[in-house]
Simulated scan of single mutants.
Amino acid sequence: MVIQAIRTALFYALFIGQTFFIAIILGTIALISGRTRASWAIAVYWGTSTLRILRWVTGVKTKVSGQENIPEGGCIIAAKHQSDWDVFALFPHAGRPAYIIKKELMNIPFFGWAARSLDCIEVDRKKGAKAIPAMMSQAHAAIARGCRIVIFPEGTRRAPLATPDYRQGIVRLYMELNVPVVPVALNSGLFWGRNSLVIWPGTAEAQFLPAIEAGLSADVFVERLKNAIESGSNDLALKAEAKGLSRPIDPDLRSKFDALKQSQTTAP
Rank of each mutant, 00 (worst) to 15 (best):
Q207M: 11
F191T: 01
V181G: 01
V60I: 15
F20C: 09
L105F: 07
F91I: 06
G27N: 08
R224E: 09
M136C: 11
S233E: 03
G244N: 10
R254P: 02
P251S: 11
V179W: 03
A237K: 00
L216F: 05
G112V: 06
V179F: 00
L236G: 02
K103D: 14
G74H: 03
R125P: 00
L173Q: 02
G74R: 01
S65E: 15
I143H: 02
A94G: 14
Y45L: 14
I25A: 11
L197V: 02
W56T: 09
D250T: 13
I170Q: 00
I32P: 13
V182I: 14
G66H: 06
E213F: 00
T163Y: 10
G74N: 08
T48A: 11
G73K: 08
R7F: 03
K103V: 10
C120W: 06
V2W: 14
S83L: 09
E72M: 06
I121G: 01
D119Q: 13
S83W: 05
L31Y: 04
D258E: 11
F15R: 09
L118N: 08
I25F: 02
T19D: 14
L14S: 09
G128A: 12
H93V: 04
S217I: 15
D250W: 04
A78Q: 03
F20L: 15
K63C: 13
K239C: 13
L90R: 01
L90Y: 05
R194P: 06
I29V: 15
L225G: 10
L236P: 05
I77F: 01
L225V: 10
V182S: 06
G95Q: 03
T8L: 01
I77C: 07
A129S: 11
D165H: 06
Q82H: 08
I149G: 00
T36S: 13
D258W: 07
V181Q: 00
S233Y: 02
N227Q: 15
R145F: 02
A129F: 06
S246I: 00
I212K: 01
F15G: 13
K256M: 04
A237S: 12
G27I: 07
F21P: 07
K261W: 04
K127S: 08
A211N: 11
S83Y: 02
G193N: 09
F110V: 08
I42G: 05
T50K: 01
L253I: 08
Q4P: 12
G202T: 03
P71L: 01
V2P: 00
V123I: 15
S217N: 10
E104R: 04
S217P: 13
A141C: 01
S33K: 15
G59A: 08
C147S: 09
Q262F: 05
E154Q: 12
W113Q: 14
I77A: 00
Q67A: 03
S246Q: 15
R158D: 12
L26Q: 09
V150E: 04
A78L: 04
C120T: 07
W85R: 02
